[in-house]
Structure formats: structure tokens, C-alpha cells
Simulated scan of single mutants.
Amino acid sequence: MVSTIQNTDVKQKDADRAVVVAVTCRAVFESGADDGDDIYGGGVAFPLLQALQRVNERLLEESPAESLLFDVILITTDSQQQQQSSRITSSTRHYGLEVSRFCFSSQEDFTESLLKNNVQIFLTTDRDEVLLASQNGVLSALLDQQLALCPSEQLRVMISGDAVIRPDTDPMPGGQQAAQSFSAQLGQMRQKFGVLDSPLSIVLVTLHGGRESCGNALRTLRSRGVSVDEAYCLAGAPRGPILSVLRSHFLLCDGVSGLEE
């Protein structure tokens, strides 16, 4: 059974324009043992939500009527946390997190809540959930423990040139189409800020091929309205070391994606 609760503490986003991002509650808050405190501690994805919110704040500073904003949903499949739904809402309010809706579901049918809420990207620390969501056509990314070290003042999104930048096919695979759509929305947001002091940074990484491969990926992204702030060509080198230095919040691919191999 799926239950969705609207957060009346925040202004709801424009459903036709907003970029819906769903994050698992267990990644945002540390549940732990019930110590009687009404507030959860911050989890590994806490800086991510702050960074998403910072982008929204800056967009509205640029234009108060802006409707292309991140619309954040918390997804809860943990039975213990579901029994403490008031603690989740209290924690969100305590930290000033701009969460539009809270979705409660079982592990088996959480993808139903993603589809019902038109989620454009689903972020979780559970690899099985990434696989299941991807198989149901929802663009997903795997979050890891390094996320806790990522900045909260700037959203850093890494795009895998090898996976996303491919010649268009007919029909286009669902994962590729979703990744292209999401990256295009990020590109629109990024265009609203200058070169310096942007709350959104887009990083391109090509794992294979040489400079030509990276150049092709850059040109393809630009043709879709996506300008990147940084580009790296690994040419087959292990990606782990550079990922730890770049500290991106998540890696965008066309299927199962994450910050680890």
C-alpha cells in the first residue's frame, strides 16, 4: 500500500515545471535506536538536500516567479520509520528542509510511489532499490558514504559521458531518454547563473576513449543546452581516486548509476 502526505509547511511546486527528486528517508536521516528524541540525526544525504534547496533559493533570488525548481520527495520503506512518521516530519521541520511530500510504502511497491509522483530521478543508498526502480523506467542513482563529505552550498552533478552521450536511436531506450531529459533540465537551471559562484556545478567524466571521446561528449551536451563546468577524460584509468576528489553528489547515467563500480 502506498500513502503520500503533502507537507503543508512548504509551498508546493509547479507540477508542470518542477524537477521531481525522490530520496530515501534512511539516506537523509539516521534512524538508529529510539532514544526518545523527537529529531533524527542527519544522514549521508543530508548535504544533498541542503544543496538542492540552495539551488532553489538562488533561482528564486534571480527570479521570484521562477517555476523550474527542484521538488523533493522523501520515500520511506523502512517499517520502523513508518511507525515514526511524525518524527520524520518533525525532523524535516527542525532542519528547515524543503520537502514537498512524504511517501510511505512497502519495499515491494515503492516504485509505484515513484511513478505516481512523476519522479524524474530517484536517489538511494540501496543498490537493489536502484535496480528495481531502473527496471521500472525510473532514472536512479546510488548514493554512498562519501556523500556526507560533499558540499551543501553547491549541488555537484557528475554526468557519465560513456553512458549518457550516445547517438540517438529509434526507439530511444527509456533509461537514455530519462537521463537526457534530466540533464537538459539541469542545463536550463545552470544557464540561469554566471560562471562564478553558481549553486549548481555540472561535471563531465568519460571513462573510456581519449580526448576525442571527451570532446564529442562535450559537443553533444552543448547541442542539448547543457554546458559543463568541468570535464575529465580518464581514458580507462580507475575512476575511484578522481571521484573522491571531485566530491559530486551523484553520478548520472542511463541506467544503474552510482559513485562506485
Score class of each variant (00 low, 15 high):
residue 91 S to K: 07
residue 113 S to D: 15
residue 87 R to H: 15
residue 87 R to W: 15
residue 117 N to R: 05
residue 113 S to V: 12
residue 115 L to C: 04
residue 60 L to M: 12
residue 64 P to E: 11
residue 166 R to W: 04
residue 75 I to A: 10
residue 166 R to F: 11
residue 115 L to M: 08
residue 126 D to R: 03
residue 106 S to M: 10
residue 130 V to A: 01
residue 116 K to N: 06
residue 199 P to K: 05
residue 102 F to L: 14
residue 123 L to G: 03
residue 88 I to D: 06
residue 147 L to R: 10
residue 131 L to I: 00
residue 102 F to C: 08
residue 75 I to V: 13
residue 184 A to L: 00
residue 171 P to W: 06
residue 104 F to S: 05
residue 88 I to F: 14
residue 190 R to F: 02
residue 65 A to K: 15
residue 58 R to N: 04
residue 146 Q to M: 03
residue 123 L to F: 12
residue 142 L to C: 08
residue 168 D to W: 04
residue 195 V to M: 09
residue 174 G to P: 03
residue 113 S to H: 15
residue 92 T to P: 10
residue 168 D to G: 10
residue 143 L to I: 11
residue 138 V to L: 09
residue 191 Q to D: 13
residue 152 S to H: 03
residue 63 S to A: 06
residue 72 V to M: 15
residue 130 V to S: 00
residue 187 G to D: 13
residue 137 G to Y: 02
residue 155 L to D: 11
residue 145 Q to S: 01
residue 172 M to W: 05
residue 91 S to A: 02
residue 78 D to R: 10
residue 144 D to C: 04
residue 189 M to W: 10
residue 58 R to C: 04
residue 120 Q to H: 13
residue 191 Q to I: 04
residue 192 K to Q: 14
residue 161 G to R: 01
residue 77 T to C: 14
residue 173 P to F: 08
residue 197 D to R: 03
residue 77 T to N: 00
residue 77 T to E: 08
residue 76 T to F: 11
residue 72 V to P: 07
residue 91 S to I: 01
residue 186 L to C: 10
residue 185 Q to C: 06
residue 166 R to P: 03
residue 94 H to M: 01
residue 165 I to F: 15
residue 63 S to V: 02
residue 89 T to R: 03
residue 94 H to T: 03
residue 88 I to S: 00
residue 151 P to H: 10
residue 101 R to T: 09
residue 101 R to Y: 10
residue 151 P to W: 14
residue 59 L to G: 04
residue 147 L to K: 07
residue 152 S to E: 12
residue 130 V to M: 00
residue 124 T to R: 13
residue 66 E to M: 05
residue 87 R to V: 03
residue 118 N to T: 00
residue 69 L to V: 08
residue 170 D to H: 09
residue 98 E to R: 04
residue 192 K to S: 15
residue 138 V to W: 11
residue 197 D to G: 04
residue 154 Q to H: 10
residue 72 V to G: 00
residue 73 I to S: 05
residue 107 Q to H: 15
residue 131 L to T: 01
residue 159 I to V: 09
residue 167 P to A: 00
residue 110 F to K: 01
residue 172 M to D: 08
residue 81 Q to G: 06
residue 160 S to P: 09
residue 105 S to G: 07
residue 182 F to D: 09
residue 197 D to E: 08
residue 135 Q to A: 05
residue 127 R to I: 06
residue 191 Q to G: 10
residue 168 D to F: 12
residue 73 I to V: 05
residue 70 F to P: 01
residue 164 V to K: 00
residue 109 D to G: 06
residue 126 D to K: 02
residue 191 Q to R: 12
residue 140 S to V: 02
residue 139 L to N: 00
residue 180 Q to T: 00
residue 198 S to L: 00
residue 102 F to M: 12
residue 179 A to H: 11
residue 69 L to K: 01
residue 97 L to C: 08
residue 81 Q to A: 04
residue 64 P to G: 09
residue 184 A to V: 02
residue 62 E to C: 08
residue 90 S to A: 13
residue 136 N to C: 07
